[in-house]
């Protein structure tokens, strides 16, 4: 098993942060836009809504950054680490929307954080790189 270089760790953490934030903020904007629907055609109203447009753009960024991260990192690394987005969503709900966080939710947050810390310290890549590199 190869140790991850500091540069790879930095690149991976930076990209994981982009993946997490674009997902959380994208879903947040999308749900905000979908709730503020006015009268008339709901589809047209959604397409013209700036929050929906921002949400969709952020979710495209999410998809592309996640694909980039998967170009070198293991799926079994990316999946648990990006689950931190659930924690961020819950905390944003509490901080910005004044939502109540129940003891059960706090337990969920603690479990996910523990999972992220555990997996975050494993090697980023465990498969052999570059078996077929196109020029």
């Amino acid at each position: 098993m190869t140790a991850s270089s500091p540069r790879l760790r930095f690149k991976t953490r930076l990209l994981a942060a982009i993946v997490i934030c674009s997902n959380v903020l994208g879903n947040f904007s999308l749900s905000r836009g979908m709730r503020s629907g006015g009268a008339g055609n709901p589809f047209l109203a959604a397409v013209l809504n700036p929050w929906v447009a921002l949400g969709v753009s952020l979710l495209i960024l999410w998809m592309l950054s996640r694909m980039t991260l998967l170009s070198w990192a293991d799926l079994t690394y990316v999946l648990p680490v990006t689950a931190f987005g659930y924690v961020l969503t819950a905390l944003m709900g509490r901080l910005f929307l004044g939502e109540h966080v129940s003891p059960g939710r706090w337990t969920g947050i603690a479990l996910i954080v523990a999972g992220v810390v555990l997996v975050g310290n494993t090697p980023i890549r465990t498969t052999r790189p570059g078996e077929r590199r196109s020029a």
């Binding site: 337990t107 996910i112 465990t126 498969t127």
Partner: peptide, 26 residues
Amino acid sequence: LLKERVGRRRWAGALLVACGVPLIAL
């Protein structure tokens, strides 16, 4: 299928997340 090496830490992490996500959604 992808031949990733999943050690004890990764299994534990995946299970913790799989238990934590439902709790957060309740």
